[in-house]
């Protein structure tokens, strides 16, 4: 605590169809617990978690969003300044996998990161605890898609049984940090000015 090391706040947005387990994944990762009583997320909420990455203390702010596509238009209010986006689908639902494309596109439009080509995503196929026969999306199919989108890291998880959840979010964290680069790391939370300066930078405008 007394260290003067710079602290980092990473904003991670979790997207995907309703019912794929976004809230469950987030709670499993942050609070180490699972409940099948989570209500459908309305609007948005976030949890934060502190992690050490290499020897750096990082605070992850994980944004849980409503899964129904029509609520996406509100995303702009909280996608802004995102450092990473976690796309979640349910391996037992082909539909939820097929919509990943539109979730990704919509996110890039609304968050408008300065380098959309290289913006860090992570894909999570959730609910692998179900029996194999239920599975609708093969690992191969998912990985092919991830590869085609610029080698997005892919994880198969079970929020219910806490399988691979930690790894998935850690990857999100690391990729976001790499993307940031040391120069962009801002210290001392809360510092919205720094967060917002992302946006200011995007214009590449010159005052003169």
């Amino acid at each position: 605590m007394s260290s003067s090391r710079r602290k980092v706040l990473l904003k991670v947005i979790i997207l995907g169809d309703s019912g794929v387990g976004k809230t469950s994944l987030m709670n499993q990762y942050v609070n180490k617990r699972f409940s099948n009583q989570y209500k459908a997320t309305i609007g948005a909420d976030f949890l934060t978690k502190e992690v050490m990455v290499d020897d750096r203390l990082v605070t992850m702010q994980l944004w849980d969003t409503a899964g129904q596509e029509r609520f996406q238009s509100l995303g702009v209010a909280f996608y802004r300044g995102a450092d990473c986006c976690v796309l979640v689908y349910d391996v037992n639902s082909a539909k939820s996998f097929e919509t990943l494309d539109s979730w990704r596109d919509e996110f890039l439009i609304q968050a408008s990161p300065r380098d959309p080509e290289n913006f860090p995503f992570v894909v999570i196929g959730n609910k692998i605890d179900m029996e194999e026969g239920k599975r609708m999306v093969s690992q191969k199919r998912a990985m092919t898609w991830c590869q085609s989108k610029g080698n997005i890291p892919y994880f198969e998880t079970s929020a219910k049984e806490a399988i691979n959840v930690e790894q998935g979010f850690q990857a999100a964290c690391k990729n976001a940090l790499q993307q940031e680069g040391e120069a962009d790391i801002y210290s001392d939370y809360p510092d919205a000015i720094k967060i917002n300066s992302h946006d200011a930078d995007q214009g590449y405008g010159c005052a003169c």
Partner: peptide, 10 residues
């Protein structure tokens, strides 16, 4: 506040 959930001090 939730176990492990972090709230900004404010």
């Amino acid at each position: 506040a939730g176990v492990g959930a972090y709230d900004a001090a404010r």
